[in-house]
């Protein structure tokens, strides 16, 4: 499991540039599902055929990053955000472009108050001495992502892009286990979630499933002096009640709780005040698709190092497997 997570987390794939991730996942699932296809939005759809209900399981492939908006005459890059980037947290971070070019994010130092350090006051230094030199490596419109190892320690995983390669890894692992069921299962690896839950919308319309789940991360309430939230790392996968994009369909929520109880899988109930998931765009697609989610409790979401508990991940695979069989 760790190897799958590490491989996926280290694959380049900011929103709109998910192809490498899709290719990696296709490689992992080739021969293990009945059909692998890609739609116009770049969603990777892996189908296990069946005569029962159509179940869509979605995890997004894209990760947050930056996009180069201007290169100045001295070779410094100005940039905008791809997805939600907390400005102060990215200072001093390394980013890497698809071609391997590494840059450092820094800011205009003549600012009185660090609160005023917005992205517009920041730049990326790739060590170039001039615009020409910079342009040999990077063009306006190129995207970069955080640099960061994937490590396992004390039963936790620390890595960049856990959001949502962890969801992708859980889907891959579930598909590899080939749960025995008559249901038709769609393992869907979606695009552009971080910029507005976009890929899942067309994927869901193309499939028109009877039920859908988003497999993603959620915040926790277990670090010093944080916002209250009744979810903690290691407490089990979280069954979604509500986030900003969706309130889980009661039927889907109840099926998940029942599946967890049947197999005695530890679980928590998630109400996340900020942030949405693919379930948000899936449930309003076409005539409405009953949707919910399984979330992996995750600390430091959208930072260069995110942290999850490996037990939660393994239990999520169990829960998902049981859900697919029992609904």
């Amino acid at each position: 499991m760790f190897d799958i997570i590490k491989t996926l987390a280290q694959t380049f794939g900011p929103s709109g540039n998910e192809k490498k991730v899709a290719d990696t996942i296709s490689g992992m699932l080739r021969g293990k599902v009945d059909e692998i296809r890609t739609d116009a939005m770049g969603n990777l759809i892996c189908v296990k055929k069946g005569s029962g209900k159509k179940i869509m399981l979605a995890a997004h492939m894209d990760e947050i990053g930056i996009i180069v908006s201007y290169i100045d005459e001295k070779g410094f890059l100005r940039f905008g955000n791809i997805g939600g980037l907390p400005p102060l947290i990215i200072l001093g971070q390394r980013v890497v472009f698809e071609n391997g070019t590494v840059g450092v994010i820094w800011y205009e130092e003549n600012i009185d108050n660090m609160k005023n350090v917005t992205l517009g006051k920041m730049f990326i230094d790739i060590g170039a001495g001039s615009r020409e030199e910079a342009e040999r490596l990077v063009k306006v419109g190129d995207m970069a992502v955080f640099v960061g190892d994937t490590v396992e320690q004390n039963g936790k995983i620390i890595s960049k892009s856990i959001d949502d390669r962890i969801g992708c890894a859980i889907l891959v692992e579930t598909a590899l286990r080939q749960p025995e069921t008559d249901n038709e299962v769609y393992y869907v690896f979606t695009t552009q979630e971080e910029v507005g839950l976009r890929g899942a919308k067309t994927a869901a319309f193309g499939i028109l499933p009877d039920l859908a789940l988003a497999i993603d991360v959620c915040d926790t309430g277990d670090i010093p002096n944080c916002n209250p939230m009744a979810v903690k790392l290691g407490g089990g996968p979280a069954i979604k009640i509500k986030d900003r994009s969706v309130i889980a369909h009661p039927l889907v929520k109840d099926l998940l709780v029942k599946a967890a109880k049947n197999k005695k899988i530890p679980y928590q109930l998630e109400i996340m005040k900020d942030g949405g998931t693919d379930a948000g765009s899936i449930h309003t697609t076409a005539g409405g698709i009953p949707s919910g989610g399984i979330s992996i409790p995750c600390r430091f979401i959208h930072d260069a190092a995110e942290m999850v508990d490996l037990n939660d991940v393994n239990n999520a695979v169990k829960l998902l497997t049981e859900f697919v069989k029992s609904c």
């Binding site: 969706v246 309130i247 309003t284 076409a286 005539g287 409405g288």
Partner: peptide, 16 residues
Amino acid sequence: VQEELGLIGAFSVTYN
């Protein structure tokens, strides 16, 4: 339903 959460019910109704 779910208008207060973002006009959710209207999406499915206007499609169906």
